[in-house]
Write a protein that binds this DNA or RNA. Structure first.
Length: 590
DNA sequence: GGTCGGGGCGCG
DNA sequence: AAAGCGCGCCCCGACC
C-alpha cells in the first residue's frame, strides 16, 4: 500500500492513500502530528511512503524515534527515470514541468530546514526556517501524486520493468539507510587517532596552520637537497608546490613530466627520499589530521553525509569528511563500543564476478563459483594469479599497456563471452550510444562537445583532429567500465537494503515516544542495544552490534548477499561470497 | 578578499 | 604507442 505524504505547517502533514496505479484512493487526510501518524501506521502494517525526497521528512522522523520500512523517493526515482528517458531520446514531458518544479521547491525548503537544524544544536526546538518559501502543501501533494503516477507508468514501460522497479525501490531504501547511518555515525576513537598522528608527525602544533615537527624537518631536508637552495638564491622550495619542485629539479638537470609518486620513485636525487616521506605524511596531516578530527568527530562518532546515487555509476558519494576515502591506517581509530563488535562484510572480487554474471560466460562462471576468483583463473595464465588479476582489471578498465595486451588476448580466447560483453559496451560508448547496468541505470549521453568533436572526425574531408579519436576511446573506456561498476553498485545497493531488512527482523519494532530512552535522537528502534548499519563503502558494510548478536548479524549479511545475487542476476552460476569478520577494531578486519 | 582548475593522492 | 574506471579533498597559483 502506498501513501503520499507532504509536511504541512508546524508538526502537521497531509496524507493520501493511493491505488496500485498511483491514483488517489479517497480523500486527503490532514494529520496534526505527522511523525505520530507515520509511527502509528508503521506499527500497524506499514505502508510505502511516497514523498518528494527522503532527505527532509526522514530526518525529522528519525529524530522523533520513528523508522520506516519502505518508501518511494520521488527525487531519486526521477533521476533514474529521466536519466533513462533522456539517454534513450524520449521527448521530455512538458505537462509535468509545473508539478516537478513544485516538488523541487518543496525539497529546497526541506534542505533549508535541515541546514538551519544543523546550525542550532538544540534538537527539539521547533524549526521554522524555510517555512516561508515552502509551497502550499495541498498543491504540493497534488503535484506529488501526479509525478509519482507518471513515474509508475514510466517504470512499467521499461524494457525490464521488474528490474528497473527493483532499482527504484532499492535506491529509495538506500536513502533511508543513508539517513540512518548519518544519525548513527561510525564509532571513532579520537584518542587513538590523535596517538597515530602524534607518532607519525610529532605533537600537535600549538598554532593551527603550522607544520608539525616531523613535516617541518622533512621540508627542510628537501629544500636543503637542492643546489639552488645551497647557493642561497631562492626561497626554500615548498614541497607542497609541484611547480616549485619541478623547477628546482630542472635546475639540477632533472626534467620530469610531473611530481607523481610513480615518477619520483625512479629519480635519483637527494631530495627524493625526504620528499616521498613528506608527501605521505603531509597528506595524512592535511586530509585526516587534527583539524579533521575537530571538525568531524563528535561524541565518539564520525557522521558523514552520504549522497545516494551521487556517482554516475550509482555508487554513493559523500559530502564532508572524505568518508569514502579514509586512509586504511586510520581504520585503527574505528573501534566498537565496550561490549559491542563491528561486523565487517565485504564482497570478495565483486566486479569481476559481476562481469561473469552479466556476460553469462560459463567458463568464467565456473571459475567464479569458487572463493578466490583470481586463483581459479590463474590456470589460464600459466598458473600466475597476479597475471590473471591484471588481465581482469584491464578488461574492465580498458587498459592495454605493457603486459596487459597479451594477457587480454588470453582472456579473450578463454572467456569469449566476458570479453565480448565489455567490448560491446566499449563500442557503444565510442559510437556515442548509452549503456545500462543490469538493473537499468543509464550512463549519461555524450556531451555536445564530444559529439561535435567526433562527428567532425567522421567526415572524411575534414582535417583529422587527434583529439577526436582520443575522446572516442576515452568514452569507450568509460562505458566499458560503466556496465561493470554500475552493475556492481546495483548488487551492493540491493545487498545493503536487504541487510537493512534482515536487521529489522532482529530488532525491536518501533516504540512509542514514551518508550524512548531519553530526550535525544534515536535511530531505527536502536536504543542502545540493537545492531546498526554504520558504514557503507561501495562493496563493504559495517554493522555496529552488541557482541552477543554479532553472529546473528553475520548470518544476516550472508542472507542479504544471497538475496542480492538472486534479485539482481536471477539464476546464475556465479557466486558472490562475502568476507565477514567480527572484530573490535576495523583495522583487524583483514 | 573570493573563486576555480590543475596536480596530486586517498578510497573502491 | 599511449593508456587504463569512478569519486572527494587538499594545496597551489592564476584570476577576478
Amino acid at each position: 500500500m502506498r501513501v503520499a505524504v507532504v509536511p504541512g505547517p508546524r508538526q502537521s502533514g497531509l496524507l493520501c492513500w493511493l491505488r496500485e496505479d498511483g491514483s488517489p484512493d479517497g480523500d486527503v487526510v490532514k494529520v496534526p502530528d505527522l511523525v505520530a501518524a507515520i509511527r502509528d501506521h508503521e506499527q500497524n502494517g506499514g505502508a510505502r511512503w511516497v514523498w518528494p525526497s527522503s532527505a527532509g521528512p526522514y530526518q525529522r522522523l528519525l529524530r522523533g524515534g520513528v523508522c520506516v520500512a519502505r518508501c518511494h523517493d520521488v527525487a531519486l526515482a526521477d533521476a533514474l527515470i529521466l536519466g533513462r528517458d533522456a539517454a534513450l531520446g524520449a521527448a521530455p514531458d512538458e505537462q509535468d514541468d509545473a508539478a516537478r518544479a513544485l516538488l523541487r521547491a518543496c525539497r529546497a525548503a526541506d534542505a533549508a530546514e535541515a541546514a538551519s537544524r544543523a546550525d542550532q544544536q538544540a534538537l527539539f526546538d521547533p524549526v521554522e526556517a524555510g517555512a516561508a518559501d515552502r509551497p502550499d502543501p495541498r498543491r504540493t501533494l497534488d503535484a506529488l501524486i501526479e509525478v509519482h503516477a507518471d513515474q509508475l507508468r514510466r517504470i512499467a514501460a521499461d524494457e525490464h520493468p521488474d528490474r528497473f522497479g527493483l532499482l527504484v525501490t532499492a535506491e529509495s531504501a538506500g536513502a533511508l539507510v543513508a539517513a540512518e547511518m548519518n544519525l548513527a555515525g561510525l564509532p571513532w576513537r579520537p584518542d587513538v587517532h590523535d596517538g597515530l598522528l602524534t607518532d607519525m608527525l610529532g605533537p600537535r602544533p600549538a598554532v593551527p596552520g603550522q607544520r608539525p615537527a616531523r613535516l617541518a624537518d622533512l621540508a627542510a631536508q628537501v629544500a636543503a637537497a637542492f643546489r639552488s637552495h645551497t647557493r642561497g638564491r631562492h626561497e626554500p622550495v615548498n614541497p607542497d608546490s609541484p611547480a616549485q619542485l619541478l623547477h628546482a629539479l630542472a635546475a639540477d638537470g632533472i626534467r620530469l613530466p610531473s611530481t607523481r609518486l610513480a615518477v619520483l620513485r625512479d629519480v635519483d636525487h637527494p631530495a627524493i627520499p625526504p620528499l616521498l616521506e613528506y608527501k605521505e605524511l603531509a597528506r595524512l596531516h592535511s586530509a585526516f589530521g587534527w583539524s579533521w578530527l575537530d571538525m568531524w568527530v563528535r561524541n565518539g562518532r564520525f557522521s558523514p553525509e552520504y549522497v545516494v546515487g551521487g556517482v554516475v555509476s550509482g555508487r554513493w558519494a559523500s559530502r564532508g569528511g572524505g568518508a569514502l576515502q579514509i586512509p586504511r591506517l586510520l581504520r585503527q581509530a574505528v573501534v566498537a563500543d565496550p561490549g559491542w563488535a563491528l561486523v565487517v562484510a565485504d564482497a570478495a572480487q565483486l566486479e569481476p564476478r559481476v562481469l561473469a554474471a552479466l556476460a553469462g560466460d560459463r567458463a568464467f562462471a565456473a571459475a567464479a563459483a569458487a572463493g578466490d576468483l583470481y586463483a581459479e583463473l590463474a590456470a589460464a595464465f600459466g598458473g600466475d594469479r597476479a597475471k590473471a588479476k591484471v588481465a581482469m582489471l584491464s578488461a574492465m578498465y580498458g587498459g592495454a599497456g605493457g603486459e596487459a595486451g597479451q594477457l587480454l588476448a588470453v582472456l579473450r580466447q578463454r572467456f569469449p563471452a566476458a570479453d565480448g560483453y565489455v567490448e560491446a559496451a566499449a563500442r557503444a560508448g565510442q559510437e556515442g550510444r548509452v549503456v545500462r547496468s543490469v538493473l537499468g541505470r543509464t550512463c549519461p549521453p555524450p556531451s555536445a562537445n564530444w559529439r561535435a568533436l567526433t562527428e567532425e572526425a567522421a567526415d572524411p574531408d575534414a582535417e583529422r583532429d587527434p583529439r577526436a579519436g582520443q575522446a572516442a576511446r576515452a568514452r569507450g573506456r568509460f562505458t566499458r567500465n560503466f556496465v561493470v561498476q554500475a552493475s556492481a553498485a546495483d548488487w551492493a545497493l540491493v545487498m545493503l537494503v536487504s541487510l537493512r531488512a534482515e536487521l529489522a527482523k532482529i530488532t525491536r519494532p518501533n516504540r512509542t515516544q514514551d518508550e524512548l530512552p531519553s530526550a535525544g535522537p534515536d535511530s531505527c528502534g536502536a536504543g542502545r542495544d540493537q545492531p546498526e548499519l554504520v558504514f557503507f563503502q561501495h562493496d563493504e558494510v559495517i554493522v555496529h552490534s552488541p557482541r552477543h548478536k554479532a553472529d546473528v548479524v553475520a548470518a544476516a549479511a550472508a542472507r542479504a548477499a544471497s538475496a542480492a545475487s538472486r534479485l539482481v542476476f536471477g539464476p546464475t552460476g556465479v557466486a558472490f561470497p562475502l568476507n565477514t569478520a567480527v572484530v573490535d577494531c576495523y583495522a583487524d578486519a583483514k
